[in-house]
Computed example of a mutant assay.
Amino acid sequence: MTFDLSNFIAVSGFSLLAVVVLMALTAREGRRQGRVSVVDTTWGLGFVVIAAVAAVVGDGMAWRRLVLLVLVAVWGLRLARHMHRRNAGKGEDPRYAAMLEKEGGNPTWVAVRKVYAVQGVALWFVSLPIQVSAAAGPGVPAVAVVGILLWLVGFVFEAVGDRQLAAFKADPANHGKVMDRGLWAWTRHPNYFGDSSVWWGLWLVAASAWPGVLTILSPVAMTYFLVFATGARLLEQHMAQRPGYEAYQRRTSYFLPRPPKRGAA
């Protein structure tokens, strides 16, 4: 069995349609709730939907379609649940509020153009390894195993990091303090590092069969978003004025985990 281009086109087309429908429903719910941040929950769910479409519509190797569906579902559903619980009962995310205020005009239309459409395109593009893999034939299982192991490392970092941060914030004694314990002592962004590792792992699973390797720009784009665009960079700007954060920056790695520097204050 070789790569089936016509099947890939079908998988990609149905995936794009699913993303459009999902983002339209998200925009409607966001307008009803009066906050754009509902899209944060949709982000994880969107990848699960695409992985399900790829598993059903694709005619490539069944075991790889199933593996990718399971990995994406475990990651995406956990992330969606985490974001929903984090945002429940709260107002608009300051990042989105600042963007809407800066753009001016009709806030609903601005949100459609600047948030829902952009994230929809990003969803479809980042998920290309899953789409391509769904129409690919036999590959090298050992490469897929390495990808699964990398996914596992990323999932642990992201899930444990989120849980550690939630527990830290839940303690009133930590109000106003900087989280610098557990995984947060090794990297200032264990959740973003984990997210990036998850997608490099998924790419490796897809790259185990030709032409999955050609979708490398998808994990590159995801890593760029997490490190430089909407993830760590914006959070660093937000946290810069918090007492103790500058010292935390000096002793703790920005992204890649490493032991904290001793003596940095």
Results as ranks from 00 to 15, higher is better:
Phe3Trp: 11
Asp4Arg: 05
Ile9Ser: 02
Ile9Trp: 04
Ser12Lys: 01
Ser12Phe: 08
Gly13Val: 02
Leu16Lys: 04
Val19Glu: 05
Val20Gly: 09
Arg28Ser: 10
Glu29Tyr: 04
Glu29Ser: 06
Glu29Lys: 05
Gln33Gly: 14
Gln33Ser: 13
Arg35Met: 06
Ser37Leu: 12
Asp40Ala: 06
Thr41Pro: 05
Gly44Lys: 09
Gly44Ala: 08
Phe47Cys: 10
Val56Thr: 07
Val57Met: 05
Val57Asn: 02
Asp59Arg: 04
Trp63Ile: 14
Leu69Gln: 09
Val70Ile: 12
Ala73Thr: 11
Ala73Phe: 01
Trp75Ile: 14
Trp75Cys: 14
Gly76Met: 01
Leu77Phe: 08
His82Lys: 05
Ala88Thr: 14
Glu92Asp: 10
Glu92Gln: 15
Pro94Phe: 08
Ala97His: 08
Met99Gln: 14
Gly104Lys: 14
Asn106Lys: 10
Asn106Glu: 12
Pro107Tyr: 10
Pro107Asn: 12
Thr108Glu: 11
Ala117Tyr: 00
Val118Ala: 14
Leu123Ile: 13
Leu123Ser: 15
Trp124Ala: 09
Pro129Leu: 12
Ser133Pro: 04
Ala135Phe: 02
Pro141Glu: 11
Ala142Pro: 09
Val143Gly: 11
Val143Phe: 11
Val145His: 00
Gly147Thr: 02
Trp151Leu: 08
Gly154Tyr: 02
Val156Arg: 03
Phe157Leu: 12
Glu158Tyr: 06
Ala159Asp: 13
Gly161Asn: 09
Asp162Cys: 04
Arg163Gln: 08
Arg163His: 08
Ala167Ile: 02
Lys169Met: 09
Pro172Glu: 07
Ala173Gly: 10
Asn174Leu: 02
Gly176Tyr: 01
Asp180His: 03
Leu183Ala: 06
Leu183Gly: 04
Ala185Ser: 05
Ala185His: 00
Arg188Ser: 09
Phe193Glu: 05
Asp195Phe: 02
Asp195Glu: 14
Trp200Asn: 07
Gly201Arg: 04
Val205Asn: 06
Ala209Lys: 03
Trp210Asn: 10
Trp210Asp: 13
Trp210Ala: 15
Leu217Ser: 13
Ser218Asp: 10
Ser218Ile: 05
Ser218Tyr: 02
Ser218Asn: 08
Ala221Met: 15
Ala221Cys: 13
Met222Gln: 14
Thr223Asp: 02
Tyr224Asn: 02
Phe228Tyr: 08
Met239Leu: 15
Ala240Gln: 15
Gln241Ser: 15
Glu246Phe: 00
Glu246Tyr: 00
Glu246Gln: 10
Ala247Gly: 14
Ala247Cys: 11
Tyr248Ser: 11
Ser253Met: 03
Ser253Arg: 12
Ser253His: 11
Tyr254Arg: 15
Pro260Phe: 07
Gly263Tyr: 12
Gly263Asn: 15
